[in-house]
Amino acid sequence: MALGADATRRRLSQTASSWVDRHFRWLLVSPAVVLILALTIFPLGYAIWVAFVTYDFNIPGHAWRGIDNFKEVVTDPNARKAIATTAWLATAAVAIELVIGLLLALAMVRPFRGRRWLIPIFLLPLFMSPVIVGQFWALLLTEPFGPTNWLLGAISGSDVNIRWTTQTPWAYFSILLADAWQWTPFMFVILLAGLSAIPDDLYSAADLDGARPRQAFFFVTLPLLLPVMLVAVAFRVIDAAKIFDVIYVLTKGGPGTDTYTASYYLYEQGFQLFHLGRGTAGAWMFMILLSVVSYWLVRRLLKPVEA
């Protein structure tokens, strides 16, 4: 250690550093705590006031409105539809990603030549902006630029005229496609880590017991993978429920309000129509809803770390 050279300076700083040492642990966490307080907790508190007043760029002043902002959101059919859409889109997306991600992880868990190169390629989407991913699919699917219909037509031998982004249910399908493209690798890489961590001797034991591969999968792999799977699903559910970017780029919520998600609806209320009071009220309700859903997921997440 390069200290102790200058005894005088050391004595001078002794008092200061002993104070620092005593409060060391609190000093270390304080910047993080202060930042989080300042930029999420305080704004959310401020938002409570906003949610109860008129805060609208079409209407001057901030008159007290009581729960009217909340009422307006709850009675807005578009808002209710957006919540339902968010719920099932998120569920569907996570389910698709889980299944494909798991199969891919199973296919990739045993080594083969080129595996070392394939894995980084599979992970590419995780490092891209969702805007860019949404745009990929806009380029592929939107008529008349996208080649998708032509390709499908060439494969099936008949004319295909699917309006991928402007017709229900295809618009949902397109969104799921974009989401799956970006996030299946997430499931894959986590499940791959989980699979790799299962000790080989368990399989040998199962083999000795005469278990068929399918039995080995259901009685060895799956139970051991389950905690990891839960973590992956939890993170994906939390993020999928916030889906915004892909909608913004791909469908703009259309056709009609069919692909409005909670985040997109609130964004429109807040930043395209500038009903900030209503948007804030909606955002609070959405956050509470999401917290309730995520609560047990997060509790679950904490466990492996405490262990």
Binding site: N58, T166, Q167, G254, P255, G256, T257, E268, L273
Partner: peptide, 21 residues
Amino acid sequence: PAAADYSFAIDRACSAVWGGE
């Protein structure tokens, strides 16, 4: 005032019709 609100509602109505409404 709120011209954007009115316009958005119409835009959505139209695209809903293109979607079969």
